[in-house]
Write a protein that binds this DNA or RNA. Sequence first.
DNA 1: CACCGCACAAGTGTTGACAATCTTGGCTTC
DNA 2: GAAGCCAAGATTGTCAACACTTGTGCGGTG
Lengths: 226, 226
Amino acid sequence: MPAQRKAAPRPPVASADTPARDALRKAILDGVYLPGERLVEASLCEQLGASRFIIRAALADLAAEGLVEVQRNKGAHVRKISFEEAVEITEVRMVLEGLVAARAATLVTDEQASELDEIALLMRRAVAAEEFRRYSDLNQRLHRLIQTIARHRTADRLIETMRAQLVRHQYTLSLLPGRPAASLPQHERIVEAIRARSPKAAEEAMRAHIASVIEALRSLEAVGLS
Amino acid sequence: MPAQRKAAPRPPVASADTPARDALRKAILDGVYLPGERLVEASLCEQLGASRFIIRAALADLAAEGLVEVQRNKGAHVRKISFEEAVEITEVRMVLEGLVAARAATLVTDEQASELDEIALLMRRAVAAEEFRRYSDLNQRLHRLIQTIARHRTADRLIETMRAQLVRHQYTLSLLPGRPAASLPQHERIVEAIRARSPKAAEEAMRAHIASVIEALRSLEAVGLS
DNA sequence: CACCGCACAAGTGTTGACAATCTTGGCTTC
DNA sequence: GAAGCCAAGATTGTCAACACTTGTGCGGTG
C-alpha cells in the first residue's frame, strides 16, 4: 500500500460522529441510568472513555432533547418525567403523528400501500399468536413507515424526541394485558385510511389511536404503576 | 446592614443565567446575523464579550433550537430555512396550537374569557384604523394568552421554538396587504369557541387560522418574495 | 493556458489545569 | 440533645493553550 495520506478516507458521514452522546443516550434509554439519578461528569468520563469536554457537550445535547436536566453548579440528572408530563408529551405526539398520517395519505405510493398492508397482516397474526414483543416491534415499524412515507422532517424530529422521553413508559404500556388486542383495530383503521388516500380519515384514525394510548396511560396511573 | 453572608441571596432563578446564549439568539432574531451567514467563534467572542468556551456552548444550544447549524470542523452558520421547511414548521405549529386552543377551551376562567374578548375588540379597532403594527402585536398577545390559559408546557416550548425559526418570514407576512382583514374573523372565531368552552371548535378554528397563514406563505412564495 | 500538488493560514476540536461553587461531616454552642 | 456553623472534599464552571482539519492561493508542470 503506497503512502496513504493520513487518515482513513472517512465515510461520507454528514454531521454524526458523536459517539459519546449516542452512547450516553443509549445508556439512559436502556435504563443504565435511572430517572432522577445524578450524572457526575467525572464518572461518565471513565465509563464512556471520553474527556470531560466531550461529556459536557453530550449532556448539553441530551438536555436539549429533554432526556437530562442540568442545573447550574449542581450538575445533571436523568430527567424524571411526571405523569402529567407524560400525558402532555403523548398529546403532542398525537397531533404530530396525526399530521404525518394525513400527509402520508396524500403521498403514499402503491408499493408503500402494500407494505402497510403487509405490516397490518403481520400484526393481526402476532396478536392471534399472542406474540406481544413481536407486535410491539411491528407497531414501531408501522409508525416509522408512515413517517417515511410522509417525509415531514420537521415533525419527524419532534416525534422522535417525544418518543425518546417516554421509552420507559411506552415499554411498560405494551405489556398491559389486552392492550395489543385493543390497538390492533386502530392500527388497521389507520392503514386503511392511508391506503384509501384520505388525509382526514388518516389523521382521525391516528389521533384516535394515540388518544387510546393516553387512556391506557391514565388507567396505569390510576392503578399506581406509572 | 450587618455582615451579609457571601453573595446576594440570588433571586429564585431556576436554570437561566446564560447571557451569551440569549444575546446571540436575540442578535440572530433581530437580523444582526443574516441567514446563511457564517458565525466565527473568535468574532463572536469579541462582539459578545465572552470566551470561546461560552460561545461554543451557546452555539450548541441554538443549534438544538434550530436557529443555527453546525458542521463538524466547518463551523456554524445561521440556519437558512427553505420554503418547504417554512411550510413544515408552520404545519407543526398549526397542530400544536390547535391542541393548545382545545385545552384552553376546557380550562379558561371567566376572567380570562373577558380578557380574550377584549383583545378581539382591540383587534377589530386596529384593523379598522389600519394600524397593522398594532394588530401584529395583538396577534402575538392573543396567541400567548391562549397558551397561558392552556398551561401545556410541552407544547408551549415547541411552539416557541417553531415560531423563533420563522420570525423573519412571519414579519414579512404581517405586511401582506389585506392580511389583517382576512385573519380578523378567524381570530374572532377562535376567541368565540374558547369562550364557548368548546374544545373541538377551538381547535378547528385555530387550525383554520394557521392553515390560512400557510396559504399566505404559499402565495408569497409564488410571487417570489419568500 | 489549464491542471495538479503543496504549503500556509484560518478556524475548529480537544485537553488539562485552575477557580468558583456546592455538599457533607464534624464540631461548637445553646 | 438539637441546631447552627465551619472547614474540607467533591463537583462543576471557565480559561488559555495546543492539535488537528479544512480551505485557498501560489508555483510548478504537462
